[in-house]
């Protein structure tokens, strides 16, 4: 999977350690979004025809199309359900997360 990765982050320990100017570098993720999800999209990769509509329309860009089959970055999927709703052959199922 080719998606930005979670970064290690050390809280500044004193005032001098806080950045001046730009607050932090680009591509700087220090927390994940997985906890937002009530339902998890699960792709039936055997049924999937690779039309890539889900990849195109995911607001979070978490569906990776670089491999032979689609892969979802569950660290950042919010479970919005757009992918499942827009998949014409209906091969994405929204499965309740267990807590």
């Amino acid at each position: 999977m080719n998606r930005p990765k979670l970064k290690q982050w050390q809280e500044p320990v004193n005032i001098d350690a806080y950045p001046v100017g730009s607050t932090c570098p680009s591509d700087h993720l220090t927390s994940i979004n997985a906890g937002w999800r009530t339902y998890r999209p699960v792709i039936d990769t055997d049924k999937c025809v690779m039309c890539l509509r889900c990849f195109l329309l995911c607001p979070d860009g978490v569906i990776d199309k670089s491999g032979e089959k689609l892969v979802i970055d569950y660290d950042y999927c919010k479970g919005c359900g757009i992918c499942a709703h827009e998949c014409k052959p209906g091969c994405i199922e929204m499965v309740k997360e267990e807590k």
Binding site: N2, C51, L52, L56, L57, P59, D60, Y76, K78, C80
Partner: peptide, 29 residues
């Protein structure tokens, strides 16, 4: 541009917009 030739690389990622936010898709694309 279409889904097939669109880059797999993301330039707007891990944002905290509500699930299903239309604006975030517009920014992403």
């Amino acid at each position: 541009h279409n889904a097939r030739n669109l880059t797999n690389e993301e330039f707007f990622y891990g944002h905290k917009a509500c699930g299903g936010c239309g604006e975030s898709l517009a920014v992403r694309l």
